[in-house]
């Protein structure tokens, strides 16, 4: 028995196998499909987690680094070179760039197998994570509007992640 649907669970595969008394030789195919499905979910969630962590971190580090440098004064070529030197010798800015590169690689990888219409809304959970972390770690006051937004985002992500991460088999949809 072959599981054709990626979201088919172990339980339903097993039930079908038992109920229809399928041949023993075909059971490993079902197990293989279930493993592939489990792998798909695992690597999709892992990549989105990397995106959710490194995307906002990169933005925060870049913002912090630029604020540390201060207002950019580029009235003359000498000023511009001096500002560029400050930017490219700042460890905070390099850490920010490294975080954003990590984010983008994770984004590219997840898009190699998962739907864009799945990844884009699912990664919006970063807004919720940022609000919760800001409240817990930085003791920021989060407005009720923002909390409401976080709850609605979580609900939306719950709906989106309830759908299969991949609905296409061919890159050009052919």
């Amino acid at each position: 028995m072959v599981c054709f649907f990626p979201r088919e669970t172990a339980h339903s595969c097993l039930s079908r196998a038992l109920l229809k008394n399928s041949r023993l030789s075909t059971q490993p195919l079902c197990a293989k499909s279930m493993n592939a499905s489990r792998d798909l979910y695992f690597k999709t969630y892992s990549s989105i987690l990397v995106m959710v962590f490194f995307g906002p971190l990169g933005n925060v580090l870049l913002g912090k680094g630029m604020k540390h440098i201060g207002a950019v004064a580029a009235q003359s070529p000498k000023d511009a070179i001096h500002t560029l030197m400050l930017i490219f010798t700042s460890s905070t800015i390099w850490l920010g760039i490294a975080s954003l590169i990590t984010f983008f690689i994770a984004y590219m990888l997840v898009l190699s197998w998962a739907d864009y219409s799945y990844v884009q809304p699912a990664s919006s959970i970063a807004y919720g994570a940022a609000a919760v972390l800001a409240h817990l770690l930085l003791k920021e006051v989060i407005s009720p509007t923002r909390w409401l937004g976080v709850i609605i985002i979580c609900l939306g992500v719950f709906f989106v992640t309830g759908t299969p991460p991949r609905t296409t088999e061919h890159p050009d949809g052919a």
């Binding site: 219409s117 809304p121 919006s124 609000a131 923002r146 409401l148 937004g149 939306g156 709906f159 759908t163």
Partner: peptide, 14 residues
């Protein structure tokens, strides 16, 4: 439905 909720939620957060 999920996408619509995320759109509303992100708007409220921002």
């Amino acid at each position: 439905v999920g996408v619509a909720l995320v759109t509303v939620g992100v708007t409220l957060v921002l």
